[in-house]
């Protein structure tokens, strides 16, 4: 009797999991496998033929793909540490019960998270347009004579592309850190204070170690999101000027649906992103685990 009970429970468990698991398999593992196969094929949809590694050798000769990868990595390496660092500092500053305007600050800093990437990009595009708000202010203040085309120059365009993400994501990450901070027992800080630890010591020896799981999670999620940057580049600069702000996801999309659609080549490129994301995630997990 008891065994059948257990068995029935076990079956119920499986029944509860099955829809979700099936969906994940159908929507993730199956298409990933299909993409892998397609990456060895060339031709039009429906008439694709196996051509071995030709797509991959093409990547090696494609300087625009290399540029796109470089733009993407630069974007990730600069934005992610800034987002996580700022979010952590702001969360620590906000995690102060004596702070009077806490609610207002928190709300203000979080608000951009509710704005979509597309809308954020459009807002910054309007603010920084050659005839936009920032330029008129700079001209009115006498700093500039004529409007500077921020989005028309490679370096400034790349910087603004990064600013959009930082602006939108800092508050979002901050909420996670704030939640993590609130779960740390206040008694630990009290004890440290009695032992004469400075606030800086408390930060590095209590806050950081206690927040490590949250930070690791935030890091992996932010890197994976930033590496797939697409919405912003399409709506801020459309990859321009030239290809200066064309990240790899944007390039893949254009390869798949641009002038001459080439799904095979686009899939090969996406396998490169998969490998990069995989390596980065593993590295982060390893570094994160080591300090235990």
């Amino acid at each position: 009797m008891k065994l059948t009970m257990k068995k029935r429970e076990n079956l119920t468990g499986w029944a509860f999991l099955t829809p979700a698991v099936l969906l994940i398999i159908i929507m993730n593992f199956v298409p990933l496998f299909q993409a892998l196969i397609m990456s060895f094929e060339t031709g039009r949809t429906g008439k694709m033929t196996f051509t071995g590694l030709s797509n991959y050798t093409r990547i090696l000769e494609d300087s625009r793909a290399a540029d796109a990868l470089k733009v993407t990595l630069e974007y990730v390496v600069i934005t992610v540490p800034i987002i996580i660092g700022l979010a952590l500092i702001l969360a620590v500053l906000l995690n102060d019960p004596k702070l009077k305007l806490k609610g207002i600050y928190r709300t203000c800093i979080f608000v951009p998270a509710a704005v979509s990437m597309v809308a954020s990009a459009v807002i910054f595009r309007s603010l920084f347009a050659a005839d936009g708000f920032v330029n008129s202010v700079l001209i009115n203040l006498g700093i500039l004579d004529t409007g500077y085309n921020f989005l028309g120059h490679p370096t400034s365009a790349r910087i603004i592309l990064m600013v959009v993400r930082v602006w939108k994501m800092v508050g979002y990450q901050m909420i996670f850190f704030l939640a993590g901070l609130q779960s740390i027992d206040a008694g630990i800080y009290e004890a440290a204070k009695i032992d004469g630890a400075t606030s800086l010591q408390q930060f590095f020896h209590i806050t950081i170690p206690m927040l490590k799981p949250t930070m690791l999670f935030a890091l992996v999620m932010s890197v994976n999101a930033a590496i797939q940057v697409y919405d912003e580049s399409v709506n801020l600069t459309n990859g321009g000027p030239g290809n200066a702000t064309m990240p790899i996801a944007h390039y893949i999309y254009n390869m798949a649906f641009g002038g001459v659609p080439n799904f095979g080549y686009a899939c090969a490129l996406s396998m490169i992103i998969l490998v990069v994301v995989g390596i980065l995630t593993m590295l982060q997990m390893r570094v994160g685990d080591k300090r235990e």
């Binding site: 298409p31 990933l32 993409a35 949809t45 797939q228 996801a249 899939c267 996406s270 992103i273 994301v277």
Partner: peptide
């Protein structure tokens, strides 16, 4: 095993899904 899907970028799976 399912956790691995967190590492799969959507750009890698969207084209086959689109075709399906």
């Amino acid at each position: 095993v399912l956790m691995l899907t967190m590492m799969i970028p959507f750009v890698a799976t969207m084209l086959p899904i689109y075709q399906t």
